[in-house]
Each structure stands twice: as C-alpha cells, then as structure tokens.
C-alpha cells in the first residue's frame, strides 16, 4: 500500500490534493473495487439465516432470519435489549456470528473487503462522535471517501459536490455547513451523520435509531428520506422506537423480542394489541386514525 502512492519529493506539497474530485495520491495506482450493479426492486441486498450472535456469555441473537430488499423500508422494533442494534451491526458486517450466515449482496459478509463493503452499505451509528473539530461540510464529505479516485458516483453526472450538497439539503443541515461539528446540538449532529450516510450513496442503508434525538419535524423528514431512498431502489433497514413512525413509513416491520423475531410483516398486520402488549409487557391499544385509517398505537392509560 505504501509503495503504491506516487512518491512525494516534498511532503509539504502533498497537503493540497484536498480538492473534491482531485483526490490524494495514496490509491491512484491501486486496483479500486468496483461498485455493485444496480439492484432490481425486490432483490435481497442483505440477509441473515438462523443467525446466532453471542456477546460475552450473553446470547444476543438466537436464530434470526431477516432480509433487506431493494425498494423497501424494513423497520426493526422491539423493547430495549431485544437485539435490534446487534442485528443491524450483523447486517453491516461488523460482527462475527457465533453460527448462521450473514450475506451482503449475495456474498458472505466476511468475504468482502472493507472498501468493497463501503460501496455496498452505509451505516448510521447510534451516536455520532468526532475526535477533531471538522466542519459539518467536511464531515458530510467524508461519506464520499469510498468513491475517492473516481470522479463520478453511481450516476455519471453526479460529482462529489452535488452529492454532498443534496445530502445536506435532504437533511436540512445546509444552514450550518461551515460550523464545526462539535458545536452542534445532539439533533443537529444526528442529521449531519445521516447526511454523511446519504452522501455515501450505498444501495443498502442501515440506520440505528436515526430519529432518537430529533424533533417532530425532523423525525418525519428523516423517515420521508428513507421512503424516498427506497423508492429510488435502495434497501433501507431502520431501528425505531417510535411504533407510530414505523407503522406510517415502513413497508415491513420485524418485531424483536429477546434475540428472536416475534413477528414480521406489513405494519398493519403485525401491529396488534395482543402482540405489542405481550412483547413490550405493557398494555397497548392499536386503532385506525379517524380520518386516514392509518395505524395508531398508544399505551393504555385508563386510570
């Protein structure tokens, strides 16, 4: 790797390869992994088969089968500690399963290299941290790193600049593009992190609680973005705590309980009084919206 970059006669000048499109020389001569071919709607972009994951002595997932399909928003819901984030990490190829299989784009997750995976899936972590005071725009631009050394994204006319600008517009972070990331509030950081994930332009999006720190307006905004990405042909897997949001925006939901899938299907089939009351150990009411007929979920508060 170190020998593949062009020689730097004077290191001082290598600092300025930092323009969009004109990327550094570290990988110029290296073979770059090819981006995946476009997926057809319904293609399985990531799946698990009887997945078991152990963290320490704890069985976190036991026998989970789940598939993320192109063109679909899949919501993972369930009580705390049910294994939602672990399942997402497994789909992201972050974890080694104790047994079972994780496949990303049809190939075992462990067989992909890090650069290949980066072109295939983008991951939004639960909390966004940053060691140095990069600006918001610089952070979003980091999402373009997998595409470095190629001037164009999946669509030929899309340069890094446009992709970054679009990702920032979609998450409404343009207003503080020049501010340091560390100076933002929790909700603003979460949106910047999402913008970075969108800028990666991977066909599989894995989002861990993207709405946790957000206000009402931006919760809706983020899930609309998820829907739009799905409509554009991406597979979106999103961990949610808000069942109302899951019911309104997901094509399919998987309800997890104690490391197993308790139910999976369309939200209006899966979300029933009995199932949710049992899974959350809290009486829950499910009823249709008086005007739209959409699924509404509230805890029972009779007293």
């Amino acid at each position: 790797m170190k020998s593949s970059g062009g020689p730097s006669l004077f290191p001082g000048f290598s600092g300025f390869s930092g323009f969009p499109g004109c990327s550094g020389f570290s990988g110029r001569l290296r073979r770059r992994p090819a981006p995946p071919p476009p997926a057809a709607p319904g293609d399985v972009l990531a799946e698990t088969e009887s997945l078991h994951v152990r963290l320490g002595s704890q069985d976190v997932l036991s026998g989970v089968d789940v598939a993320a399909r192109a063109g679909e928003v899949l919501a993972l819901v369930g009580p705390n500690g049910a294994g939602k984030s672990t399942l997402l990490a497994a789909l992201a190829a972050d974890l080694r399963p104790a047994s079972g299989v994780v496949r990303v784009h049809g190939r075992a997750a462990a067989d992909w290299s890090a650069p290949e995976l980066a072109l295939r899936r983008a991951v939004l972590p639960q909390s966004a941290a940053l060691s140095f005071p990069f600006t918001v725009e610089e952070v979003v631009r980091m999402g373009r790193a997998p595409w470095a050394h190629r001037p164009h994204g999946r669509d030929e006319e899309d340069s890094d600049d446009t992709v970054v600008a679009e990702a920032m517009a979609a998450t409404e972070v343009g207003a503080f593009a020049a501010r340091p990331f560390s100076a933002l509030s929790g909700g603003e950081r979460a949106r910047v992190a999402l913008a970075r994930v969108l800028a990666q332009r991977a066909p599989l999006l894995l989002l861990d609680e993207p709405t946790a720190a957000l206000d009402l307006r931006h919760q809706e905004l983020v899930l609309r973005v998820c829907r739009e990405r799905a409509r554009a042909g991406d597979a979106v897997v999103v961990v949610l705590h808000d069942l109302g949001l899951a019911a309104a925006y997901a094509h399919r939901v998987a309800v997890l309980r104690a490391g197993r899938i308790a139910a999976e299907g369309a939200p209006d089939e899966v979300f029933t009084d009995t199932l949710l009351s049992e899974v959350y150990r809290q009486p829950v009411e499910v009823f249709p919206h008086p005007r739209t007929g959409g699924v509404l979920i509230t805890p029972k508060r009779d007293s």
């Binding site: 170190k2 730097s8 952070v139």
Partner: peptide
C-alpha cells in the same frame, strides 16, 4: 516523512471512530 502523508485521508475518517471509519472502507487494523 514520505509515508505519513499517504495516510492523511484515512486519518480524517478515523476521526469518526473506528467502526464508522471501517464502514467507509478503511482497513482500520492495517
């Protein structure tokens, strides 16, 4: 001094944390 600047971009990504850097294609161990 010659090798260090070759890793500048990857160090930028490492500021996000190890997992996010890996998600963006950095072989963090190496």
């Amino acid at each position: 001094l010659v090798v260090a600047p070759l890793y500048a971009r990857k160090l930028d990504l490492l500021a996000l944390g190890e997992r996010p850097a890996r998600h963006l294609g950095v072989d963090v161990e190496r």
